[in-house]
Each structure stands twice: as structure tokens, then as C-alpha cells.
Write a protein that binds this DNA or RNA. Structure first.
Lengths: 215, 215
DNA sequence: TAGATTGTTAATCGATTAACAATC
DNA sequence: TAGATTGTTAATCGATTAACAATC
């Protein structure tokens, strides 16, 4: 079954989407092996899910398998990569070249999913003109012009929370459509801009509450 | 309404828990102002939720308000801090003092939620004995002994994915009960150890898929 | 008092899980 | 063929939202 929105795009529940991003690296590993097909049961067992969930998640993508055999691994890998957009480069600007910004810039896990941080920005004049992991650090003054010139769609905020809203405003004004926000503040943003908040304190709290429950 | 588990502990849905961690910093800010009470409507409006959701989330914690007025701010802040465990220190070991590890160690947002990274560990001999943000970097050889001695319950894995499982094994063996895992791999862990996975590539994918849907 | 807001029970919605026919 | 596995429809479960009585 395929649920589509008005424009014909398949709508995948976010939890399914997240799981699909977890299946993919595992399948890539498998694809270097000898077996040709993989079943939902195998995937589920390897990653700690249940087979029906894996089957349903894959069904959302429109990818089909063969009864009795499972899914052809290399085809599954290719189609999943396309479906998740890991093959299309996402030109991105990062603002805030502190510790967290640097960690994001140097994070090896992004090489496979198409994130291209083409420049970083920082308020500190001492950092401007330097490079981190080959990424040049520029002044915010150039932000808007460069967004247009380089066709940047995504912005990452790894700046202190005090400046996050101001940075978001500049991003929106520059025409950026998606913001990945690591600052623990609610950004005021027009409806047509997508914000993905990454809140580390919140994740930690979930973990520690779960701990309380079992201890 | 309060849902409790067998041991009498209140069970809060994870989404509610995450929202509560977002209300709290906002309320802390408010508490330095002049108003004494805050209503669910005010919180909701400020943070982009709906009032009934805020009310329900707060109800889960057992904190009560006053009809017509709302919730007494300072009391709400205090009780939420206790409820979320932000006032109790969580002695934690971090393994993998690379870029991400350093970002976590230096992350200012943790000061309010009780995370105490008491030591870091790394495989690189050159790093051992040095300090980052006042946190000493030690050899893995000392891990187990120190877990016992310092009463450490939480472990953070910010090491490359290749070594994540091995580190997890050591953590489990040392008696750690909760693992915050930043490596994009499924950890094989006994049932009584809680794992919280932080998958950056997955979050990025959710954002970029949402972007595709509106553009 | 009137009315705003809480707290709680009920309704809705969406994701997960189960059941099972279709298929190779 | 028998049996494993997919794909799909239905049932269940849990979170969100609505409705409303209680309260100050």
C-alpha cells in the first residue's frame, strides 16, 4: 500500500523513515557478501526489529521483493539510497564553527548521505578565512549572497542558543528552506521552512528516565 | 491521570518527556520575570504547541495547577527539574575523545541537566593523560576499575562505529546500565542495559525528505 | 457572579502488530 | 509439491486531540 499526498509523493511515517536509514548501512555491508537476497526476517533479526515492521517499512518505499526469496540486496540498496535521497547532494551552510560545528563538519557518517557542507560561518573574526576539514569559514555578511550563488537549500545551526534566532532569521531571509537546529531553543520561522531540532539534553533525559525505571 | 508501572513509578510517554524538557528552559527564563503564574496556553503559544498537550504533559508529572490562574512558575520549575532528574548528578564516562566527543564534553547545554562527565577514554596513546574542558583522558585499561570506584552508571560512545560494539561490551562488563550511543550501529546489549541511539544521518534524512515534500 | 483555566474522561488519529491470501 | 516469504487488509495499541465538568 502506498499513501500519497496531493502531489503524488509517497508519505512515509517518520518512524519508518528513521528505521529505513538504519537498514541501509546494514544492507550495504551485506551487499559485499555472497548472498543475493535478504529477507525481512534476516534484517529484523540483525537490527533488533520484527519482520513485519521491516516489510511494512520497505513497502512504503514502493520497493518490492520476491515471495520465498526476499529482497534482491543490491537492488534494495540502490533503490533505498535513491528513496532516502542519499545520492543527491545537499549543498549546506553551517553557522557556528565551535566544538559542535566542527564535530558536524568532520563527521564521517555524512559521506554516505549526500550532505555537502560547502561553507561554514562564524561570528569570531579570528576564525574567518581559516579552514576546518577543508571547509572555509566565512563571515555572516556574505551569507545571503552566497546562498543564492551556490544554490544552498539547507542550513545547520551549531551556534550558541543566544544567537540561534538571529541566525535563523538570516537563513530564512536568504531563502533557505530547511534548518537543522542544534541550539536548544524554539525558532520562530515561517510555515514553509522546515526545522529539524536536535536536542541533546532531551535525549539524555529520556535515557536517564528509562534508567530510573529499571533500577 | 497517572499511569504507573508495577513498582509505582509513573510512566510518561517518550514524546511527552521530550516536550517537558523543552518547556523547562522556557519556564526557567520566565521565572526570572515578574509574573507568578503561567497558563498552559501561554507555554503552548511560546513554544508552538497546543494548550491541551501542555496540560496533559504536565499532568503526567503529577504537578497540579490552579484553575483560572495556571501553574505557579517557580514551583513548576522546581518540580519539573526534580521529575526530569536534572537535579541529580549522573556520573558518566565518555569513550572516544574525537571531534564529537570533544563537542559533547564542551557542550554548555548539559550544565543544567545533571550530566557529569567525570572522565573520558580514548584509544590514542597521545591523548591519554591530557585534558579537555577539565576532563582527563584515560586509557581503556582503567575503565572497569574506575566505573566501580566512581559509581558510574552512564556511558557515552562517541567513538568510530568500528569500535562501538567492543566499547559497549566493556561498558556492560563494567556494570554500566545506560549507554548513549552516537555511533551509527546497532549495539548488541543485554536487555537490562538501556541504549539511547543518536543517529545524525537519520535526522538529516528526515529533514531532507520533508523538504522534498514541500518543494 | 462570570469566565478562564485546570483535570479527566472520551473520541480520534496514526503507527504497530496480527492475520492471511498470493506467490514462487 | 510444500513451505517460506511477500504484500495487503484488518485489529490493536498508544498518543493526540476534543469535550466538558470542576474550580477558583
Amino acid at each position: 500500500m502506498q499513501i500519497k499526498d496531493k502531489s503524488g509523493l509517497t508519505i512515509v511515517p517518520v518512524p519508518s523513515l528513521r528505521r529505513l536509514t538504519i537498514y541501509l548501512p546494514y544492507l550495504k555491508e551485506l551487499s559485499s557478501g555472497v548472498t543475493e537476497y535478504v529477507s525481512a526476517t534476516t534484517i529484523a533479526r540483525a537490527l533488533g526489529y520484527i519482520p513485519i515492521q521491516v516489510r511494512k517499512d520497505i513497502a512504503y518505499t514502493g520497493i518490492t521483493g520476491k515471495p520465498r526469496r526476499g529482497y534482491p540486496i543490491s537492488e534494495l540498496v540502490n533503490q533505498l539510497e535513491v528513496f532516502l535521497g542519499w545520492k543527491s547532494y545537499k549543498n549546506t551552510f553551517l553557522v557556528g564553527a565551535g566544538n559542535l560545528g566542527r564535530a558536524i563538519m568532520g563527521y564521517p557518517g555524512f559521506k554516505d548521505c549526500g550532505l555537502q557542507i560547502v561553507a561554514a560561518f562564524d561570528a569570531d573574526p579570528a576564525k574567518i578565512g581559516t579552514r576546518l576539514f577543508g571547509i572555509e569559514i566565512l563571515s555572516m555578511d556574505e551569507f545571503k549572497t552566497l546562498v543564492k550563488r551556490m544554490g544552498v537549500q539547507l542550513g545547520i545551526i551549531t551556534a550558541p542558543e543566544q544567537s540561534a534566532q538571529e541566525i535563523a532569521d538570516i537563513m530564512v531571509d536568504a531563502g533557505i528552506h530547511g534548518i537543522w537546529n542544534f541550539a536548544p531553543v524554539k525558532l520562530n520561522i515561517p510555515d514553509d521552512v522546515i526545522v529539524q531540532n536536535e536536542n541533546l539534553a532531551s535525549s539524555l533525559t529520556v535515557l536517564s528516565k528509562k534508567l530510573d525505571q529499571i533500577v
